[in-house]
Amino acid sequence: MRLVIARCSVDYGGRLTAHLPMATRLLMVKNDGSVLVHSDGGSYKPLNWMTPPCTLTELEPDEDERAEGVQKVWFVQHAKSEDHLRVRLYEIEHDSSHDLGIDPGLIKDGVEAQLQALLAEHIHTLGDGYSLIRREYMTAIGPVDIVCRDASGTTVAVEIKRRGDIDGVEQLTRYLELLNRDPVLAPVQGVFAAQLIKPQARTLAEDRGIRCVTLDYDALKGIDNAESRLF
């Protein structure tokens, strides 16, 4: 991972446009190719980012940029769309690279792990004709909770959470981008499954073509039969 602290401005172009005026920020370039722009506030989420697959090219500033005091320009182009970032670096305070090694992945809590096991056992919960390929399907960026096939034979990647928020959708999006590069699996569809899915997460998932499924933990365990309820 490369960490750069610099006074910079950032312009995002593609499906929409966005501008971050000059300020001191943390720029993260991860080994998977993603680029994230962080500030010192605003919680843990980046102000802007580019998910892989993408390419970062360091350019010399043009005449206008040089006149404004720009030292370097990063141009980050997404490989599958017109989306791109142009990061203008005015002053670099820190630039370092670190080898973090292979991450063991998120260790899920008991309920989340049980949800995964129960859904794998009752994979038809996702729809008639679904069949399990495997749980904890390992990828270069971590294990996918469940990989299965729907009735038409299409590969489906399932991310399971107790509470589904935007971070979970982003995580599944990264898995889908990676899995869809595998000609044996592609095309791969996504299912975001949780006991509770926040409205913002549902909106983002649906915008990205990811199906949302609300899981009933008791029904999966067989304690509660939803079809027999009066209410």
Rank of each mutant, 00 (worst) to 15 (best):
I5G: 03
A6S: 09
R7D: 15
Y12P: 09
L16Q: 00
A18K: 00
L20I: 15
M22G: 03
M22A: 14
M22K: 01
R25H: 10
V37P: 01
S39M: 12
D40P: 10
S43M: 15
L47G: 12
L47P: 06
T55M: 08
L56V: 15
E60K: 13
P61V: 10
D62Q: 09
E63G: 05
D64R: 15
V70E: 00
V70G: 09
Q71E: 14
Q71W: 07
V76M: 04
V76A: 09
H78E: 14
S81C: 09
E82I: 01
D83C: 06
R88D: 11
Y90A: 13
E91H: 09
E91W: 08
I92H: 02
I92D: 00
D95S: 14
D99K: 04
G105I: 10
K108P: 01
Q114C: 10
H122R: 14
H124A: 14
H124I: 09
T125H: 13
G129A: 13
G129N: 08
L132M: 08
R134W: 08
E136P: 10
Y137C: 08
V144A: 02
D145I: 06
I146N: 02
R149S: 07
A157K: 01
K161L: 03
K161P: 03
V169S: 00
Q171T: 08
L176H: 00
L179M: 13
V191Y: 01
F192I: 04
A193M: 07
K198Q: 12
A201L: 02
A205N: 00
E206R: 12
R208Q: 10
V213P: 00
D216T: 04
I223S: 08
D224S: 14
A226F: 11
E227N: 13
R229K: 00
L230A: 13
